[in-house]
Design a protein around this nucleic acid. Sequence first.
DNA 1: AACAATTTGAATTTGTTTCTCAATTACCAC
DNA 2: GTGGTAATTGAGAAACAAATTCAAATTGTT
Lengths: 139, 139
Amino acid sequence: MEQNQELKKAGLKVTLPRIKILEILQAPANQHISAEDVYKILLEQGEEIGLATVYRVLNQFDDAGLLDRHHFEGGKSVFEMGQKKHHDHLVCLKCGKVIEFEDDLIEKRQIEVAEKNNIKLTHHSLYLYGVCQPSCEDR
Amino acid sequence: MEQNQELKKAGLKVTLPRIKILEILQAPANQHISAEDVYKILLEQGEEIGLATVYRVLNQFDDAGLLDRHHFEGGKSVFEMGQKKHHDHLVCLKCGKVIEFEDDLIEKRQIEVAEKNNIKLTHHSLYLYGVCQPSCEDR
DNA sequence: AACAATTTGAATTTGTTTCTCAATTACCAC
DNA sequence: GTGGTAATTGAGAAACAAATTCAAATTGTT
C-alpha cells in the first residue's frame, strides 16, 4: 500500500476516507480538482464519505505539505498533489483547461522585486488567464 | 462635481450611494479596501446605505473598468481605483501592508509564456507574499 | 480483546457575496 | 417644472464555499 506510507509519514492515521481521497488526487486525470469534485467522485464510487470529511482531509493534506491549494479566478479552491517542482498556471477562461509552466526568469525577477522592497519573500501566486488559441477562440 | 462625470461616463446614473462609495474609494487612505470596509466607513459617516448596495455598486464599478478587484490570500475581495498604470502587488503576511510594483520584464515574459502555450492572454494575477524586512520580521 | 485518542458523518454555523421584490429615485421629454 | 418610465435602492432571504460541533465509530497500540 503505497498510500499508507504517505499518510503515516504525514502523521495521519490510515483511514478509508483518507486513502480514497489520496487515490483520487493521485489519478492523472484529477490534477487541479475542487473539494466538491472530489466529493462527487466519491459518490460515484459508492463511498459514503461526507463533504465535511473531504474538506477536513484536504486541509490536513495541505498542512502536511502533500498538496498545493490554488485559487483560480471565480470561485472555489482547487487542489493538486504537490510532488512536483514549483510551477505556475495558465488557465483558459472558456474551457477551464489548466496548463502548468515554469519560468526561471520570472521567478528570479520576483525575488529581486521583493528584495528591492525589503520584503522577505515566502511564496507567490501567479495565474495567467486567457483563451485557448485554436480551440476556444471563436466559440 | 468631479464624481458625477465619472459615473455618467460609465453609463451609471448619479445616485448618492454611488457618489459616496466613489469618494471613499478615491481617498488615498483607502487603496485596497474590502466591501465590508467600505460599508463600515459608510456607517461611520452616518449614511444609510445597505451592504447589498455596496456589493452591487462595486461590481458595477468593476464592470465599468473604474476599479480593479484583487483576491489577496485568505478571503475577501479587495478593491482599488484603477486610474493608474497596471501593476502587481507585494503583501506582508504579518502587518497586511500592500506595496505596488511593476516589472516590465515579468510582464513581457508572461506574454511569451502564453504565446508559447497557444493562449491569447487577457489578464493575469500576480501576488508576492512575504514579511516586511525590518519592521515585521522579528515580531 | 481492550483502551485512549483520533476520526468520522450529519447537521449546524460561519462568512462572503448575490438575489428578490416592493418602494423609491434619477433622468428624459414635454 | 411635471409626469412617466426605467433604473436603483434597502432589507431580508438565499446561495455558496468552507469550518465547526458533537456523539458515534474507528484506529493503532497495548
